[in-house]
Nucleic acid binder design. Structure first.
Length: 1121
RNA sequence: AGAUCCGUAGCUCAGCCUGGUUAGAGCACUACACUGAUAAUGUAGGGGUCAGCAGUUCAAAUCUGCUCGGGUCUACCA
């Protein structure tokens, strides 16, 4: 028996997928898909490692679908695409998870639990959900190599990181410096930004805020200001600067103004001392300190009892004019004297000057920012730029240092829960008030970050940290970024581009436990340091230390069970050039370094696989994809490290996909309970429907509103249609034994409709290929959808049904089979990257019979190549015409209530030009059979018969006419039928516009048929049809015959006859139908496979009663045995 | 606060780059039809201040500016 096309017993995607999965596993389909391309050009893909200590969510499914479909597509395009999986295993989330699990805090590490035990727990916990991840990977059909993944805690991985760090170190790009970080004096530890983002850390608190007065120094730079105060009551000028943290004032070293902000010099009185003063502040903020009625008030009669301060603007200027003006230190003590100011650069600091920076606003304060480089990141940055030095008048416990007079050793906030703590900020403000140095002191409520463990306010504090000098190669990074193909473009130019422009050095240090240790060893005095770049180097350095420093050192060191984590590496002591012992600096490396170094570390470069990187075989990546939230994460660290170390891009194309929101557009979160479980979704609807939905519903970079209903729709609409089409094909092919054994019938020997669908198919191949090459899978998917639904199923198959079940297995049938087969086979290969399961299932079924491909899976075939010769644009156009015409005629039938089975005599179609007629003629038969009409008449000479309308061709006329457009439109609207036909006959028309002649030609207008008086008419665009709705006697009879055929076919079906069974029919005599049936007997018999139709006086068992156009009729249908 | 994306029918989305006169599709809804693809299908109908305002233009969903709303990232500040 011949092999048959397997017919599905129902569209059960999850079940089909399970079968396919088994097949893939049995055949090692994934491995084979890579192996089959051995020697081919590599297409390099990097997998961004997920962290396996969290459950996979639906948002992982979208980015992995994207990655998978590109890799599958490129494989089918002939590239070899290796996909090494990986796990991100270090970092704070892991540590916090473990701490929560063990019920400990960071302080307990090393006390309640040893560092070794703690890290061991992290190591185990981090792969907690690995099984779940493997499961989702398999079930969603993500092909990635999970047998040999890279793991960031692996010694080999870390060794590469060390090698890279050393290279940075040798290039002078790794350095130690202070940075301003959130710091909790109460807990005695720095906080990561992640910790600062814990819920509840920002609290509204009331603090004493002060507007302090900084006295300007008169010299050349400030002369223009002092010129304005000559002859004024006070010769002094003060800058006003606001602070909510008066404790930072003793550390003040600068005042920062905005270069484009307008400032004013105001003559007034100090509201506390009532002394005359001149102050500078932003013009926009005058109203915050002065009442309008006080402007130009009475200065002479001012006394301390006056409620309203008189004030007067003496001068106005831009912030940029203030740059460099000096002022006197606000609060001078021995501790903050000039000699105690530490430099921020190599030169001697020049403090107490006005600086300029863009971060200054006029929303709060005075428009002049008190700048203490130690206690604010912005302050530090601008302070460094202007080299004003740094003063840190607060120690790590949060109290003032010695040598600050009455403030010495006082806590700047109540960190110790002291009873009767007196707020030092209040005392400072009081002192300023008394000394004519405060202009306004008040309580101010604002939100301020607090330590999430101690609930005490944090400070920003300078801490030692290791940095990568990314700014050194900023320009190169910007330049190389321009060569990267970003999808969408705006992320690369906007979000990422801006980020690069405003780049700061990368703070690498983390004072945690579970991470890659920084491989730097230092002597106790810090004078000598050494960076280690490999395990071998570490071992030999340790051996040397052992030799020089004695046997007690590095006793337990062995190559065999070396672990490059804390606490083991910390136990290793090295020896300096001068023979001193060196200990490792305690810092760990930011986890983002782990992932950014993944291109090299996954290959254990350069210790192994050196060639893969150096010869560019696995580097840089052709393609990566992750969520848009990785823009400043992984995308950045990959780029930064690569530019710094290899002067190259790390990836040529990057797709950043948007977020998955719930159906209402809210972010999915466990708290809201709107998280979609990907396991359930795939279990219920199948991975294919889910993938198809995720890809075609919205562009990957748009946020996706995830709606289960959408998946159901995809399943029904797209997969259901494709399924039906395949089932239809399989049903008849199996009957006819079609196995594509006959020679391929040349296109020119196939009927019009076959050539049309094949043309359409090849156009589709072109479109899909273009879209996929352009990383626009959404466009590709939608195009496939449209083809399957609109063209293949709803037109080709519908129109060709008869060809499949009617007649002998001859040329026309074979044409139909070959055509439909080719469509199915091609579509399945086109969609394989997006929906890998169902496509493979259908492919298997097809190929099992025909064996046209010598492969085990659709994923081992090549992507379809377009056959340009098959594309016939005119053909596709006229088929569209046929579809439109049919649809119009059907709508008329509907309107006048004549069913399609009732034949009608004639359709009129006005043709506007010869091309249109030519096109219509070629599809005339299609239209006629589709709408059951006997003839089509084309009318060209139409005057008096068709009403035409005319309107301007705006695109053509717009440029020519400009503002006359309106008048012309009006003139054309007023055209009579005579005007139009005159225009058509003569080819041009002279209009009078505003008394001037204006010649229009036919290409500048659009003429269309509007109406045919006395006919039933419908139109769409330039196509108009008119239907003759008269049903003559002859037509009625034919209609009845068709109706009869239909009823008998139903009976056959209801009786469960085979499609090929032959029958005999008896009809109880019926006067009204006898003529119709006899007249069309031959036709009827052929349709229903009847050998006889006889009228009998009475049917013995009564037969079956049917109705033909409301006429009851008794028949009996007997199957011939 | 800055950057960026988004806002078109009840819902999901096209159209916008390159301005052109009835703003489309699918789903849902209503009615009718079809029935040897039937867990399908066709036809028709209702449903839109294209977020708002202003500008450019003969012409704006489309270009520009501002505002509002939503998302994300970054920053958190005197």
């Amino acid at each position: 028996m011949k092999v048959k096309y397997k017919e599905f017993s129902g569209l059960n995607l999850p079940a089909i997928e399970k079968e396919i999965l088994t097949k893939w596993e049995e055949n090692d389909a994934f491995e084979k898909s890579v192996m089959l391309r051995e020697g081919a050009t590599p297409f390099v893909f990097y997998e961004g490692p997920p962290s396996a200590n969290g459950m996979p969510g639906i948002h992982h499914v979208i980015s992995r679908t994207l990655k998978d479909l590109v890799c599958r597509y490129k494989t089918m395009q002939g590239f070899q695409v290796k996909r090494k999986g990986g796990w991100d295993t270090h970092g704070l989330p892991v540590e916090l998870g473990v701490e929560k699990m063990l019920g400990i805090t960071k302080e307990d590490i090393g006390k309640k639990i040893s560092v070794a035990e703690y890290n061991e727990t992290c190591r185990k916990e981090v792969l907690k959900y690995k099984d779940k991840w493997d499961e989702i990977t398999t079930k969603m059909g993500y092909w990635v190599d999970l047998n040999d993944p890279y793991i960031t805690f692996d010694n080999k991985y870390i060794e590469t990181l060390w090698w890279l760090l050393k290279r940075l170190y040798d290039k002078g790009l790794l350095y130690e410096s202070v940075s301003i970080q959130p710091y909790s004096p109460a807990a005695g530890t720095g906080l990561s930004s992640h910790e600062l983002n814990q819920p509840g850390t920002y609290k509204n608190v009331k603090d004493t805020s002060a507007v302090a007065m900084f006295k300007a120094v008169e010299n050349e730079k400030s002369q223009f200001l002092f010129n304005s105060v000559i002859n004024q009551p006070s010769p002094d000028i003060y800058f006003l600067a606001w602070t909510t943290t008066p404790w930072t004032l003793p550390s003040n070293l600068g005042l920062t103004a905005g270069p484009n902000i307008d400032y004013v010099l105001v003559k007034t009185y100090n509201p506390y001392t009532h002394l005359p003063v001149n102050v500078i502040l932003a013009k926009a903020l005058i109203s915050k300190y002065f009442k309008p009625e006080g402007e130009n008030g009475e200065f002479e009669n001012y006394t301390e009892n006056n409620k309203i301060l008189p004030w007067k603007i003496l001068a106005e200027f831009k912030g940029s004019e203030l740059e460099g003006i000096q002022y006197e230190q606000l609060l001078s003590y021995p501790a903050n004297s000039l000699k105690n100011i530490l430099p921020l650069a190599d030169e001697v600091p020049e403090p107490f000057r006005v600086l300029l920076a863009d971060f200054v606003t006029t929303e709060d304060g005075t428009g002049i920012v008190h700048t203490a480089p130690a206690f604010g990141a912005d302050d530090y940055k601008v302070g460094k730029k202007y080299n004003i030095g740094i003063l840190t008048m607060v120690d790590r416990q949060g109290k003032f240092v010695d040598g600050l007079g009455e403030f010495s050793n006082r806590f700047v906030k109540n960190y110790k829960d002291e009873k009767g703590y007196e707020d030092v900020n209040v005392d400072i403000s009081v002192k300023l008030k008394k000394e004519n140095k405060a202009f306004k002191v008040e309580k101010y409520e604002h939100s301020y970050p607090h330590c999430w463990r101690t609930d005490k306010p944090i400070l920003y504090y300078p801490l030692d940290a290791w940095f990568i000098k990314t700014t050194a190669l900023k320009d190169r990074m910007v330049e190389l970024n321009k060569t990267i193909n970003w999808k969408p473009k705006s992320t690369g130019e906007g979000r990422f581009g801006n980020w690069l422009e405003n780049m700061v050095d990368w703070n690498l240090s983390r004072s945690r436990y579970w991470g890659t240790p920084l491989p730097v060893w230092k002597t106790a005095d810090g004078s000598e340091e050494k960076c280690i770049g490999s395990i071998e180097e570490l071992i030999s350095a340790a051996e040397e230390a052992k030799k020089l420093l004695g046997e007690a050192v590095n006793q337990h060191l062995s190559t065999a069970d070396l672990d490059l984590h804390k606490p083991f590496v910390d136990e290793i002591v090295l020896v300096s050039e001068s023979g001193k012992p060196m200990k490792r600096v305690p810092d760990l490396v930011d986890v983002w370094f782990d992932s950014g170094a993944m291109p090299y570390a996954q290959l254990h470069y350069p210790f192994e696989n050196k060639d893969l990187i150096d010869a560019g075989k696995a580097f840089p990546a052709d393609f990566i994809a992750e969520g848009v939230d990785q823009t400043r994460g992984w995308f950045y660290t990959l780029h930064a490290l690569c530019v710094l170390l290899f002067d190259s891009v790390a990836y040529k194309t990057v797709v950043s996909n948007g977020l998955v929101l719930d159906k209402n557009g809210n972010k999915m979160s466990k708290r809201l309970g709107n998280v979609v479980d990907p396991f359930q979704t795939i279990e219920k609807f199948g991975a294919d429907a889910t993938r198809w939905y995720l890809i075609t519903n919205a562009s990957p970079w748009d946020n996706l509103k995830f709606d289960i209903g959408g998946i159901q729709e995809v399943q029904r609409k797209f997969f259901g249609t494709l399924y039906n089409t395949y089932q239809f094909f399989a049903l008849y092919s199996n009957l006819d034994g079609f196995a594509f054994k006959e020679a391929y019938i040349p296109l020119d020997q196939r009927p019009e409709i076959d050539r049309w669908i094949l043309s359409s198919l090849n156009s589709l191949v072109i479109r899909v290929t273009e879209s996929m090459n352009d990383y626009e899978p959404t466009q590709a998917g939608r195009a496939i959808e449209e083809f399957v639904d609109e063209h293949l199923s709803n037109w080709y198959v519908r129109l060709c049904r008869r060809r499949f079940w009617k007649g002998e297995y001859g040329q026309d049938k074979i044409c139909a089979y070959q055509t439909l087969y080719e469509c199915l086979e091609t579509v399945v290969r086109l969609m394989a990257p997006i929906s890998p399961f169902f496509s493979d299932a259908v492919f298997h079924n097809l190929n099992a019979v025909t064996g046209r491909f010598n492969v085990e899976s659709v994923h081992h075939t090549d992507f379809p190549k377009e056959n340009k010769a098959a594309v016939d644009t005119l053909l596709e156009e006229r088929m569209q015409l046929a579809q439109d015409a049919s649809s119009l005629i059907l709508s008329i039938r509907k309107k006048v209530n004549i069913k399609v089975r009732q034949p009608l005599q004639k359709v009129l179609i006005p043709v506007l030009n010869p091309q249109m007629k030519e096109q219509l003629l070629k599809v005339e038969d299609l239209i006629k059979s589709e709408v059951n009409v006997k003839e089509i008449e084309y009318i060209t000479e139409t005057e008096g018969f068709i009403n035409k309308k005319i309107k301007p061709n705006f695109i053509a006329l717009g440029k020519k006419l400009g503002s006359k457009m309106k008048a012309v439109t009006a003139a054309l609207t007023a055209f009579t039928q005579n005007d139009i036909s005159k225009f058509e006959k003569e080819g041009n028309f002279i209009l009078q516009i505003n008394g001037e002649p204006l010649t229009l030609n036919l290409t500048e207008v659009e003429i269309s048929a509007e109406d045919i008086p006395g006919w039933s008419v419908a139109s769409k665009g330039s196509l108009t049809v008119a239907l003759d709705i008269t049903v003559s006697d002859q037509l009625r009879k034919e209609g009845e015959a068709r109706e009869f055929v239909n009823r008998i076919q139903n009976l056959r079906k209801d009786s469960g006859f085979e499609v090929t069974d032959r029958i005999n029919i008896n009809i109880e005599e019926n006067e009204r139908l006898v003529n119709s049936i006899n007249e069309y007997k031959n036709y009827i018999c052929a349709e229903i496979l009847a050998d006889s139709i006889d009228f009998v006086p009475q049917i013995l068992d009564g037969g079956t009663e049917i109705e033909i156009n409301d006429i009851p009729l008794h028949v009996s249908v007997i199957k011939k045995s």
